[in-house]
Design a protein around this nucleic acid. Sequence first.
DNA 1: GATTGACCTTACCCCAAGGGTAAAGGTTAT
DNA 2: ATAACCTTTACCCTTGGGGTAAGGTCAATC
Lengths: 129, 129
Amino acid sequence: MLSISQAAKVTGLSVKSIRHYEQIGLISAPPRSSNEYRYYPESLIKQLHFIKSTKDAGFNLKESKALLNLSEDNERSSADVKEIALQKIEELEARIKQQQTLLASLKKITKQCHGDKTASCPIIDAFVR
Amino acid sequence: MLSISQAAKVTGLSVKSIRHYEQIGLISAPPRSSNEYRYYPESLIKQLHFIKSTKDAGFNLKESKALLNLSEDNERSSADVKEIALQKIEELEARIKQQQTLLASLKKITKQCHGDKTASCPIIDAFVR
DNA sequence: GATTGACCTTACCCCAAGGGTAAAGGTTAT
DNA sequence: ATAACCTTTACCCTTGGGGTAAGGTCAATC
């Protein structure tokens, strides 16, 4: 049974995050020792590992929760999992595309700026219209 | 002199945003009529337009503030403006790159999932480790 | 036995950039 | 006068925690 700081260390999460996940019901409350300290059995450590992985993969906590539920559901169909993943892929693609558009236009106007001591500035001009 | 909803309409901002910008000191407080309604002179409308443009270009409010200050500073050097823009470009490039990495690995593991009625799922497996 | 440092607890405020809603009051047109 | 719409302040909500305070606990050293 690991203490919360040990759980944080092995999972790569912060102590604060772990408490937070408990508070929002992402993981269930761990058992407490007589001094009210939280202690994490293997099953919870595994869940925390799982959440860390999904977070690293770009999912938010709500999605992590859904994935965690599916991971523990023996009756699941992989189609349900794949749907969540495909949705995230679409979302990522859209976000990337939008940022690429922003980047391109910002680069374009920035290139035209001399970047010297004079006040004349095409970047500012682009925003003034 | 435009009312706040008229100001919102012409700038493309929301009423809520305009009040928010005032509250955080991004724009100065507009004059009020005897009934305490805010009224926006041309100068403020121009500032709001400017902020909308910078926001659309991907800058956050703090950066918008800095750019707005520079836009009104006759003593500015375009180098200062360009520095902010270049910084944002770097930031965008880094974010895009990171998301592309995420996207690539997510696509890779997702492709391996059959997405059928069986429980077997390489996506879940990737998160369990 | 006492102290020290590291750990734990709850509870509160904070970030960005507003959205939503309520309660109250003002304006405009019919 | 009444409806429809506008404005005001004020408060709570969002995401994913970070920071900090005040207090309790534990293990080790003196």
